[in-house]
């Protein structure tokens, strides 16, 4: 299952934190900063899987490294879009490539809701951000992967506020990111 979904920007400032277990605020912040440290050091061409941050690594080593316990969060998957990092922490029972796709769905859904989404949209509409995530993942289990249904679900909750007028506008530009998203996703 999925243990946490995080979004933060290039400076490490959180834009969305969702932990599917109850965690002390200070621990949450530490985890975010640890993951940010890991993720910000990675080259662009590097793969999208992170080694476990120290907070998680310590406890997971208790079982043998090759077969981590199925309940233990052991997979940190991330994707980088323009100014934002999207991170999913999950157990080994999730498929790593599928999680990458899931992040893509999440971002595409946001793009559908905001029309050419950018970080500012998410800052000012963090409730919508949560609502969108809530349509995709409930309690750490994925409930929906179809883009249109996610968008529809969020829209059913009320009008999605547009960006404040005076803010300049430019999007996360999904098309230009990642490598070969289309080819990975042609099956969807």
């Amino acid at each position: 299952m999925i243990n946490a979904v995080l979004v933060f920007n290039n400076a490490g400032q959180p834009r969305l934190t969702k932990f599917y277990t109850q965690l002390e605020t200070s621990v949450q912040q530490r985890l975010i900063s640890e993951i940010f440290t890991l993720v910000s050091n990675r080259a662009n061409s590097a793969c999208n899987f992170l080694p476990l941050p120290p907070l998680l690594a310590n406890s997971s080593k208790s079982s043998t490294p090759t077969t981590p316990h199925n309940d233990t969060p052991s997979l940190v998957t991330y994707r980088h879009y323009a100014t934002l990092y999207f991170i999913i922490i999950s157990t080994s029972t999730e498929s790593p490539l599928a999680l990458l796709d899931l992040i893509q769905v999440f971002v595409q859904a946001l793009d559908g809701l905001f029309e050419n989404v950018c970080e500012l949209d998410l800052i000012f509409n963090f409730e919508v951000l949560h609502a969108t995530l809530g349509e995709i993942i409930v309690g750490g289990v994925v409930v929906e992967t179809q883009l249109d249904k996610v968008v529809q679900g969020v829209k059913a909750q009320g009008k999605v506020a547009k960006r404040p007028v005076n803010e300049s506008k430019s999007g996360l530009s999904l098309g230009g990111f990642g490598r070969g998203d289309a080819s990975v996703w042609s099956g969807r």
Binding site: N9, N10, A11, G12, Q13, P14, Q29, R30, I32, S33, E34, F36, T37, S40, N41, A82, T83, C118, E119, L120, I123, E167, S168, K169, S170, G171, L172, S173, G176
Partner: peptide, 26 residues
């Protein structure tokens, strides 16, 4: 520079990223 944990505490620098936030294809 990368060690956010060393800062005294997490602070929302709501503005430090104005330029970044609007940048699309960085």
């Amino acid at each position: 520079a990368n060690d956010r944990g060393r800062l005294s505490g997490p602070v929302p620098y709501g503005d430090s990223d104005d330029e970044d936030a609007e940048e699309t294809l960085r």
